[in-house]
Design a protein around this nucleic acid. Structure first.
Length: 1005
RNA sequence: GGGCGAGUGGCGGAAUGGUAUACGCUCACGACUUAAAAUCGUGUGCCGUAAGGCAUGUGGGUUCGACUCCCACCUCGCCCACCA
């Protein structure tokens, strides 16, 4: 009776489905166990053997848990949306919607053939409108929660896929999907505010039972660093002068003005704060004319207006028609249209229309300061900042409306300064120059004061054109250009230092600017060497006492200031960034405070860029209404005109597009489909425009595990009762390549839903295990090497059981394995022998009890296989099964039916089809996969004798069977009495005899 | 450059600080066969006829005893990479 695996496997696969062996009762489960495997991304080539490897490992664990009495839920689905599928469709010239159907069929057939205990009734596909309806719903929820927002930023652009990419999808400067070199592009895009959870994502790792390497990868990716933010004052060649306009009912003698004047004059600036006419009943013309008659604006003027003074300032500038250095508006008075206040006397005499364009042309450096304690002003100030394209600084006042006797927030915005982030404030004394990222806004705002603007502009352009990869490929040759005419003041040394622009500073990390300390930072050192900048090591700083004095940011007065005792201007780097003697926490913060800096924590993690300018994904369910935007209306603060598609209108179905090719130019193909993007505004009903980008595939997979237990729920994304019963996931197994993508996004989702009270837990996977990489013939599988293993072929040739078991036998599951063609024969032989013996067992009389040796080995095997499965050491579990079968075969007359059936149970997770068939043959009831896992008897494990090893000087010289009850004295005597031992001793007397109970005697001479 | 992991027979790999090389592949020989395949049996780290000696990347250390623990170095793999 040859084992016909083909028929038997097919038979049981059908039968299991018919009998719903793997369908847990989702409504009433006593012992739920959610055993999840990462659902596959269905490629056109069909199921990869790597998928089979991962799924088998997960399935074995699930089957083991099921036999231990759990209701195991092991769902499966397809992650079929995304660039990968779309690119494949493009390649073969099929439409992704049609191709998806073909691939789906193929994948489910293949997944069925590997014999996993899948809960087929709960399968899902991410491109199914029933599914992505909820993906879109999630988007709208995140938007309403303020976790989804739009911003313009230099983003990663893949020129080949013609779409933007998240940071996580750029690997060494290349597109994760297609390998094309990624460039930076300035685009407005949707982001998810994952950074809001940076700290929690980091902290929670501690309580998760996950593969350590994945936790480490996440920790590194989040990249928390503690440091300080310090402002460096900027000095320009021509001295600035300040013209400050107070507000309604104000005067230069009141609140912050004297202090500001003093602070600015201390720094050597000319300051004018005129008393404006008719403060209590001001008129626009009168005030504007007064200012223009008494003061002359020029390109070194910093114009600051507070409250109504801000409005006057705008008019003054408009009328003066002279370029100035900088414009700062503090808590500007509200356009009556935006105000809910009672009528003010000046409302009639002021004209609230401005020539924004003219103002923009006259001054490029503009700041609008908004007091966070005055939320009613926020929307107008935001509107104003957009109109003026000014930086909106949200600051906290000392006294509401910035009316305190000191207002550091105002002062800091008046002074031109560069804010840097550093983890090493103790090296401040060694900061000899500064570097801004090419995209730093200050570079643009300082433009009129930069003497070599042409060269600077050329450099910035070339830096933007260069891809990340090029920068790396150039071997870290750093390039940059000095901003001539601009200097910064080192707040520690008070010395003026040059300011550079260089692309080795990243705009998206920290403040986009650094203080360069070439003596203590390798990158700065290289740069300084190249451009002959001073290198000053910081040596032995000392603490001196100083009278109280405010720092640049007006921090509380200090008693201790740390100063460097001596600097040595040698050109060499003192050491590799380690700075002995003063990097203690205390010193770090003392110095930070002394220079008016503030403690700060920075994360490497960036917000998740979610937009994709492609076709094959869920359309982003947002609508933009231009007329609402004009009126400053919108669903979310700071995003006028934007509305989420109402839930009743979901899903926003992806239309069938004949030409679905990516268009480039930063727009999705949907942007050219009028019938798609033309909609009514959900708020005002006027004509509006639908968002035409689709969302990132990783959003689809960031929540799929929540859907499985509720796939038939048409009213909700997930059913609360089912979710409470089955989630969080008890065991999640998948590839380590998702360490910082899928696994981080999913955690973010759970945390966001938790905070929205949509979930009771905030971590989706309590246990996660990363399986290793399956390679073939000693090398990574690739088409070019011709070593790709096709699972269909092996299933056809050897059967699913053999393939499963062989894959698991290769090496520890978490380590990965090397698929060698020859090796599978060993497993085939093992299975054939089991098959043969299974028939012998049922055909010939069996002893009632197994012999003691067989029985002991059985018990040992039960223990070992159970422990090995729990630890995912499948290779040694298989090996133990082989040893047991060898024994049974060698001693068939001492093997009882009971023992044989226990063997089959141990085999069942690995070879589910054959064990099921043999189970029936030897009289087992029901499915073996619902039978209970055997228990070992600890008493039986113990043997009566053991091999006592005899060592001389630590080397094994002899071995002798001894009774388990032997004492130390007897063991010594037994050892010393051995012939061979005497030979090795050669008459010498032992100096020492070490006895290890139940193991060995070591005679030392 | 940083992080993580791994170096054991011809190969995949196994070993709570205590018999290194389990289990399997390969190979050799034998049985069965007209023959081959399959199957079964025996053997298989290296040197040596043997006694014995030498072997867990290299060099040191701790220990009665180290693949295992500690230090330094080398090699390979994976992940990240100008994150201040």
């Amino acid at each position: 009776m040859k084992y016909n695996f083909h028929d038997i496997e097919r038979k049981w696969q059908k039968e299991w489905q018919r009998r719903k062996v793997y369908e847990p009762d989702l409504k009433n489960s006593k012992r739920p166990f959610y055993n999840l495997m990462m659902f596959p991304y269905p490629s056109g080539e069909g199921l990869h053997v790597g998928n089979v490897y991962a799924f088998t490992g997960s399935d074995i664990y699930g089957r083991f848990k099921r036999m231990q009495g759990y209701d195991v839920f092991e769902p499966i689905g397809l992650d079929g949306f995304g660039i990968h599928s779309e690119n494949y469709a493009l390649k073969i010239g099929k439409h992704p919607m049609e191709q998806a159907k073909i691939t789906e069929k193929r994948f489910y057939e293949q997944l069925g053939a590997i014999g996993n205990g899948f809960a087929w009734d709960e399968r899902l596909e991410t491109y199914d409108p029933e599914y992505y309806k909820w993906t879109q719903w999630i988007f709208t929820r995140l938007f309403k929660r303020g976790l989804a927002y739009r911003k313009k930023q230099a983003v990663n652009w893949c020129p080949s896929c013609k779409t933007v990419l998240a940071d996580e999808q750029v690997i060494s400067g290349k597109c994760e999907r297609c390998g094309a070199v990624v460039v930076k592009k300035e685009l407005e895009q949707w982001f998810f505010r994952i950074t809001k959870y940076a700290d929690k994502l980091l902290r929670n790792l501690g309580k998760l039972d996950w593969s350590e390497r994945v936790k480490i990868a996440q920790r590194n990716w989040i990249g928390r660093s503690e440091g300080a933010e310090v402002d460096f004052e900027v000095k320009t060649t021509e001295k600035l002068n300040y013209l400050i306009l107070h507000g309604y009912t104000g005067s230069p003698q009141e609140n912050k003005y004297p202090w500001i004047k003093k602070e600015l004059e201390k720094r050597g600036y000319e300051v004018n704060i005129p008393k404006l006419p008719n403060t209590n009943d001001p008129s626009e013309q009168e005030q504007v004319n007064y200012v223009l008659e008494n003061f002359t604006l020029d390109e070194n003027t910093v114009l600051f207006g507070h409250s109504l003074g801000a409005i006057v300032a705008l008019k003054v500038l408009q009328k003066a028609n002279t370029p100035i250095a900088k414009l700062v508006l503090g808590a500007a008075a509200l356009d009556p249209k935006f105000s809910r206040d009672s009528k003010r006397p000046f409302w009639d005499s002021f004209n609230w229309n401005f020539n924004y364009k003219k103002i923009n042309d006259l001054v490029s450096d503009k700041v609008i300061i908004s007091d966070v304690r005055e939320p009613h002003r926020a929307s107008y100030l935001r509107y104003l900042s957009e109109k003026l394209s000014a930086r909106l600084a949200e600051e906290k006042s000392i006294k509401k409306h910035f009316t305190g006797s000191t207002e550091p927030a105002i002062l800091n915005n008046l002074i031109l300064s560069i804010r840097v982030f550093t983890t090493r404030p103790d090296t401040l004394f060694g900061a000899t120059y500064m570097v801004l990222a090419p995209e730093h806004p200050l570079v643009q705002s300082l433009r009129p004061r930069i003497k070599n603007w042409h060269e600077v502009q050329r450099y910035i352009k070339s830096a933007a054109g260069r891809s990340e990869e090029e920068r790396i490929a150039e071997g870290r040759v750093k390039t940059g250009i000095e901003l001539k005419g601009i200097r910064a003041v080192n707040p520690a040394t008070k010395k003026e230092i040059p300011v550079w622009v260089a692309d080795y500073v990243l705009s998206s990390y920290g403040t986009g600017a650094i203080m360069a300390v070439p003596a203590h930072d390798e990158r700065d050192f290289v740069f300084a060497k190249k451009y002959a900048l001073p290198i000053v090591p910081v040596i032995k700083p000392v603490i001196i006492r100083q009278p109280p004095g405010a720092g640049a940011r007006g921090m509380a007065a200090e008693e201790t200031v740390i100063q460097s005792e001596c600097w040595v201007g040698s050109g060499e780097m003192t050491n590799s960034g380690k700075f002995d003697g003063m990097d203690s926490e205390k010193a770090q913060w003392a110095i930070t405070k002394a220079v008016g800096g503030a403690r700060n924590v920075q994360y490497r993690l960036r917000d998740w860029l979610i937009s994709r300018q492609r076709y094959w994904g869920p359309p982003i369910p947002m609508i933009y209404c231009a007329s609402c935007a004009k009126a400053g209306k919108g669903e979310q603060k700071g995003m006028p005109g934007w509305y989420a598609v109402p839930e009743k209108d979901l899903p926003v179905k992806l239309p069938f597009l004949k030409d679905f090719r990516p268009r480039g130019k930063g727009k999705s193909p949907l942007a050219s489909v009028k019938s798609f993007y033309e909609v009514r505004c959900p708020s005002c009903g006027k004509k509006a425009r639908r968002e035409t980008d689709v969302s990132d595939t990783f959003l689809d997979s960031a929540w799929y595990f929540l859907r499985y237990a509720s796939v038939r729920d048409r009213r909700r994304a997930w059913d609360p009762a089912a979710t409470r019963a089955w989630l969080p996931v008890n065991m999640y197994i998948g590839g380590a390549e998702h360490s910082v993508l899928h696994l981080l996004y999913s955690r973010f989702m759970a945390m966001a839903f938790h905070d929205m009270k949509l979930l009771r837990f905030d971590e989706p996977f309590t246990h996660f295990r990363a399986h290793g990489l399956l390679i073939s013939e000693g090398a990574k599988m690739s088409k070019s090497k011709g070593n790709v293993v096709n699972p269909d072929e092996y299933i056809k040739k050897f059967g699913a059981d053999a393939l499963r078991m062989y894959l698991m036998f290769l090496a520890p599951f978490e380590q990965g394995g090397d698929f060698r063609d020859q090796g599978i024969l060993g497993i085939t032989r093992f299975l054939e022998r089991a098959w043969k013996f299974g028939h012998v067992v049922s055909a010939s009389p069996r002893p009632k009890d197994s012999g003691p040796e067989v029985f002991r080995l059985l018990n040992q095997t039960i223990k070992k296989v159970g422990e090995d499965i729990e630890a995912l050491r499948y290779n040694t579990a298989v090996s133990a099964l082989m040893i047991l079968l060898n024994k049974i075969e060698a001693d068939p007359q001492h093997t009882s039916l009971l023992t044989w059936n226990d063997f089959l149970k141990l085999l069942a997770p690995f070879a589910p089809h054959m064990s099921e068939e043999l189970w029936g043959i030897s009289g087992g009831r029901g499915s073996i996969h619902r039978a209970s896992w055997p228990k070992h008897d600890p008493k039986v494990l113990r043997e009566e004798t053991f091999t006592l090893v005899v060592q001389v000087n630590g080397k094994m010289r002899d071995a002798v069977e001894a009774s388990i009850g032997i004492g130390e004295k007897q063991a010594r005597e037994l050892a010393l009495g051995r012939e061979r031992v005497r030979t090795f001793l050669g008459g010498r007397t032992p100096k020492r005899i070490v006895y290890v109970p139940k193991r060995l005697v070591n005679i030392v001479v």
